[in-house]
Design a protein around this nucleic acid. Structure first.
Lengths: 193, 193
DNA sequence: ACTGGTATTGAACGATCGTTCAAGCTAAGA
DNA sequence: TCTTAGCTTGAACGATCGTTCAATACCAGT
């Protein structure tokens, strides 16, 4: 039983890496069959369809991002520093480790159309979840006195999302540029000042 | 001769709309055949391959964006106001008119991998062209006294690119949100202050 | 050892992919 | 009017797409 779940989880993670790198349409089921070492029948028995599998990888990705955010928070002395670390890690750290410099959710929203309405909606929903977490952290930062209370956490969270999306897209468009740290610090200066 | 060129230009524009909306991989040559009313042989005689056609649409898109930027500048009283108008138009105005809320160049960079290295490089190259135009305009704004000279135009242009990419991605992820104007004004306040 | 149910296999399906090319069409020069 | 060069046509190619399913392998309960 446990090995079954483990295998399923491992399969999802490998599929996530593939989809994350190449996108939904450019990743074929045969690519996935090879990557997770399963035959078509087993895959369709487990996940139903390519869309079903992709949806699970989106959820797995979002969950992993949440875990990474929590790790950044625990490694930092305050909510705001945790956020800064998370963003730096997302924009810079993922350069060599992650399959694509882009956020998988943004990449999905960028790629898909109404032809895959359910997947599009799921990606949007998961992004809202991230923004909700940002709101909570910014409220926490306000309560710590780390952030003044004149601005609404909702608005700042939106701002953070825009910055994170923009920075990751820019980083992907200009691979090899080493001046991203300065840009990220700018973001936080604007948030605080 | 003129009708031939016109037809070719019209074909490229229709192909651009298709690629812009659905992306490179999800757009089939048969979709394009129907949209531009040409048979495979003629298309391949004109453009060589799907990649060749896509490359031309990227260039056409970038050219059209340049024209739109110039129009914004002429409609405004200063370089900085022109830029602000351009960004508002890009993020908000394209909501109902454009095939996709995303910038086609960013969407392409997000979608493609090294499997289409030439197209990826072309999209990056064209984005650098946009940034170069931003730099020139910001220098112009400095010379007009519209912008103080303490910050480097290069750095501000990079910042602008990040904002534009982030705003358009965010707008696509949150269609129906009416609070983008405030976000855009924030961007310019940070640029000036 | 036998049985019954579950999971896995991989060949095969019809559809569609990007692309090619022989045949047909068209219009200008002789 | 006949020729010829170039463009257009659409059927067809082999490859690959997402998906299905009868056959097989596996293993727990008796």
């Amino acid at each position: 039983m446990s090995t079954v779940k483990h295998d399923r989880q491992e399969a999802i993670q490998r599929a996530t890496d593939l989809f994350w790198e190449k996108g939904f349409h450019a990743t074929s089921m045969r690519n996935i069959q090879q990557a997770i070492d399963m035959r078509p029948g087993s895959i369709y028995a487990s996940f139903g369809s390519k869309e079903g599998l992709f949806k699970e990888t989106l959820q797995d990705y979002a969950k992993a991002s949440g875990i990474r955010l929590n790790a950044c928070l625990e490694a930092s002395s305050s909510p705001l520093e945790g956020l800064r670390l998370f963003i730096k890690d997302s924009v810079i750290g993922c350069r060599e480790s992650a399959p694509s410099g882009m956020c998988m959710l943004v990449k999905t929203i960028s790629e898909l159309t109404d032809e895959n309405a359910e997947l599009l909606a799921e990606a949007k929903r998961l992004l809202v979840g991230v923004e909700t977490k940002f709101i909570a952290l910014l409220e926490q930062a306000q309560q710590c006195g780390e952030l003044d209370r004149s601005k609404s956490p909702q608005r700042m969270a939106r701002y953070l999302q825009v910055q994170l999306m923009g920075l990751r897209a820019y980083a992907r468009a200009n691979e090899g540029d080493d001046q991203l740290n300065a840009l990220i610090d700018d973001v936080f200066d604007h948030l605080c000042g």
